[in-house]
Design a protein around this nucleic acid. Sequence first.
RNA 1: GUGCUCGUGGCGCAAUUGGAUAGCGCAUCUGAUUCCGAUUCAGAAGGUUACAGGUUCAAAUCCUGUCGAGCAUACCA
Length: 546
Amino acid sequence: MSQIENDLKLEIIKSVKKSFDLDIEMNDVIIELPKDVSHGDYASNIAMQLARTLKRKPKEIAESICSNLNLDIISSYEIAGPGFINIFLKNEYLAEVINLVLDQDEKYGHNNTGNGLKINIEYVSANPTGDLHPGHARGAALGDSVSRLLKMSGYDVTREYYVNDAGNQINNMALSLRARYFQEFNYDVEVPEDGYHGSDLIDIAKDLVSKVNDKYINYDEEEALIEFKKFGLEAELNKIKADLKAFNCEFDVFFSEQYIRDNKFVEKALNQLKDRGYTYEKDNALWLKTTSFNDDKDRVIVKSDGSYTYLTPDIAYHLNKLDRGYDKLVDVLGADHHSYVVRLKAAIQALGYEQDKLEVDIVQMARMIKDGEEFKLSKRSGKAVALIDLLDEVGSDALRYFFISRAADTQMDFDLDMAIKRSNENPVYYAQYAHARMCSILNSAKDIDISRKFNLISNEKELTLIKHINEFPKVVADAAYTRMPHKLCNYISKLAQYFHSFYGECKVLDYDNIPLSTQRLALVKASKITLKNALNSIGVSAPESM
RNA sequence: GUGCUCGUGGCGCAAUUGGAUAGCGCAUCUGAUUCCGAUUCAGAAGGUUACAGGUUCAAAUCCUGUCGAGCAUACCA
């Protein structure tokens, strides 16, 4: 909550107490920024909310509240519509936020609404069997941005990538690599039908040859496969890490499924489930009673051949995360896994935890369009476009902004031709240009000191900009809490817009009016700080020139 | 069939999570530059929020039904 809102709420609470001898709390008072500027700088619906408890007409209540408001910071008020209280503030008071921004600088926007809550956010977690494709990019951009926002809001955040380095898909990868390796020596070995046909494994095979030459040709086959697996895994994972880094995504932990298996965490989880009575045997397999928790059928966790299903180590992994002491787990999953959510939540409850310990954000798939037609992505066929190629053509900033600017649960088309060709229409450039312009202005006014007093700030464009700057910490906190980084995109484009509009109407650098210039320069600087922090909060750069 | 997610100007998306006359970008049309960066600004046009009921001071938002879209419905991962 901003200082202004805080002050206003306290005023209203005092007034309600005075008017009706009624005690209300900070959270009962809603202060909002009206969409329409003629509805005041700030507005409250408190009179309507109290109408029921007080059994009086909202307008009458509003009258009483207003007549008891302290006018120190308020220039005027009005009662409008069904009972809204619209409040107009004194310009100089509004402009005080500029000082706050200048003082906090790169910390402006940070807030403590998270209150140190320990939160683990898992995203991407793509299998290490090939390049990341654009479908992963959306999850990466969202997860990373949400993490940044959570950190800014005072959460204790761990960014985690779950590496599925065990199981069938890895064996297929090893077999595929083996084929590519043998092909390097002109042996007629085919990549298995359900193996991975991408060209990345050819490169990895070449790399392997350069390191060990033909060592594995006449090797014990089983031993060699272990080596292929090891080498392939490491190579694939390193590529994924490099791609993510190029996409400006950082992780704190890469957590291995093999580690979960090797350290008996699966058995531990199974025992916990058994002890709590949520398992039973049927048809030679072990089942988990997920139907006790809203699933439409029970799920196998140990197959009749004794091996685990995909779900089982994943349950163990989540138990491990919980054991590590997190207050909350967040999984960012692709929409193709959404039926999995019920199962996972059921497992969490079967383990004895509240179901809302785990929250799953579903990211709708981005349909890939090329030449006006959809094409399916498949790592196995090798037809997928690699994220890294896209980064080369579109750039990290534009790509991130594109993915983040839509809410995660909306379906979207990713038109490859469009993304490349029309990249100049991406709003991210509009915002970055605004930042560059701010820098340019400040740069050409280096010889002028900026003011800390704002008695000359009165233009409508200035005030609009100031009010919007004041909103920033609240937007960050809200976007973090709801895990909706697209709110930042909306904020950014508005901020840029208000700035450009201000710039068009107000001359900042005017050597014939130095006092006003120094005050406007302060506003430009505060805008620059805010815009930069906002862009950084979603992992987009703020260039000083373009 | 069933379950999840969704349906907002021509297109792509918002809407402070139940608030005032539903906003923004692109595209279209009309204006503006002796400029502190025109990659900019000012303005116009474009809507029965898929449809039908319901809940209340107030519904794009909540409930019910219908239609439509995407995804999922494995002892695959």
